[in-house]
Nucleic acid binder design. Sequence first.
DNA 1: ACGCTATACATCGCGGCCGATGTATGGGCA
DNA 2: TGCCCATACATCGGCCGCGATGTATAGCGT
Lengths: 180, 180
Amino acid sequence: MRTMLELAILGFLCDTPLHGYELRKRITALTGHVRPVAESTLYPAIKRLEKAGLLARETQAGAIAAPRHVLTLTPEGRQELRKRLAEPARGDITDENRWFTLLAFLRHLDDEAAQAAVLRRRLAFLEEPASFFYDGDRPLRAEELDDPFRRGILTIARATSRAERAWLHATLASLSGSAR
Amino acid sequence: MRTMLELAILGFLCDTPLHGYELRKRITALTGHVRPVAESTLYPAIKRLEKAGLLARETQAGAIAAPRHVLTLTPEGRQELRKRLAEPARGDITDENRWFTLLAFLRHLDDEAAQAAVLRRRLAFLEEPASFFYDGDRPLRAEELDDPFRRGILTIARATSRAERAWLHATLASLSGSAR
DNA sequence: ACGCTATACATCGCGGCCGATGTATGGGCA
DNA sequence: TGCCCATACATCGGCCGCGATGTATAGCGT
């Protein structure tokens, strides 16, 4: 539970009811180029969420091909989505894949102050002096590495971090509820 | 099998023999700030690799605390590492986490042409016109989105992609074996 | 009439990840 | 002396991801 996939399902269904196959296409469009979604992962996930009462299924016979199961988010599902967005696990903040998924649905948190708080958690993580390579405790800079590939990791990570920090600052400033 | 974790184990052991606990510290330093490594994931992975004949274990009694198992890469392990570096799965190319792990050990591929081929696969992936959001089939640009958070995803991804493509071009040019 | 592809859902079994928990030992500190 | 922490390894159970495979229908080309 609390996986990227479940968040995406809840997030997409928050906009509009969908059947599983359409849900799959949307998730594939969102993150499929990085991590494909297998149907054998999606359908069990839908079942889990249904069993937990987070979404409801309404069978729609013979629409085009096989009978569709149109999935609708329940009030509990909406509640759960907001909770997962407002109180993300640490991994949702640190892992870029999970973070992007969260960002894709963060607008469903209607409270701007809560949105800003989440962005600030990511910002705090990016401002930690963490590297991929160390000399004892001291994080190494790209220039200090001989290996060109490892130098690449730091170069790319630094560019990403700079761009994201700039975006975070700008977005936090534009959120009216961002006052600490 | 063929997981990020196994690649990291093989990669670190290719430099020098290590015991599990030290291996864990090194993997944590490398990728732990993004995805922590649980001991209950590491030790089974070591066992798997040992059973597959990729590494050998030598018990070193009462060094500091509990008896250590010093792990050494076998010739088959070295072979397997090279194979995983030279012929990465698609996910190793597309998923940044896995890609970074691969990059961290790519120097163990002694053939510069093979290294360049791997970099070119990543470059080809980055040059695909893939987005996170579409209007039908057409990838949307950041400016076309209303949602500020989704705009952020594209802004950040674009900055990363630019920086990485620049680095890839520069590094490919400096690899003498990079001639097509 | 035949085969291919897309739509739409589903199950099974393997295997990996992980939190919880256990077992030792040695060093520091109060 | 008592306690915590770091070192060092290990197992267990549950959940999740996923490739393989199955079932059915509708549309299209040949």
